[in-house]
């Protein structure tokens, strides 16, 4: 269920990325897509109620979140620079 929700988020993100104009909306769309992928990873890590979850996807998601945040920050700065009138 969680994984299917992740796939749904992924699709919504791709849809929003393709259809809507505006850098900020596209950036948010990409982030939604990424969140969907993280959902799927976390869902895959589940191994039943009595077993500890698989730590490898958890670590990958943690890495992915940090990379996503830094990429978003860079993209926001570049977008701001594009809007600046003086150059």
């Amino acid at each position: 269920m969680y994984g299917l929700g992740g796939i749904l988020l992924f699709l919504l993100g791709v849809w929003s990325f393709l259809v809507h104009d505006g850098l900020l909306r596209k950036l948010i769309a990409i982030n939604v897509t990424g969140a969907g992928v993280f959902h799927v990873f976390i869902a895959v890590a589940y191994r039943g109620l009595d077993a500890a979850p698989d730590p490898v996807p958890h670590a990958l998601v943690l890495t992915g979140i940090v990379v996503a945040v830094s990429a978003t920050a860079l993209a926001l700065t570049l977008g701001q620079r594009l809007e600046r009138p003086d150059d």
Partner: peptide
């Protein structure tokens, strides 16, 4: 286990992730 994977078994990932942060800034 998650820390073990991040900092020991897959330490390369984490190192490169820090490098990504550095590149972004």
């Amino acid at each position: 286990p998650v820390t073990a994977v991040l900092l020991n078994f897959r330490a390369y990932d984490t190192l490169l992730e820090l490098a990504v942060l550095l590149a972004a800034i």
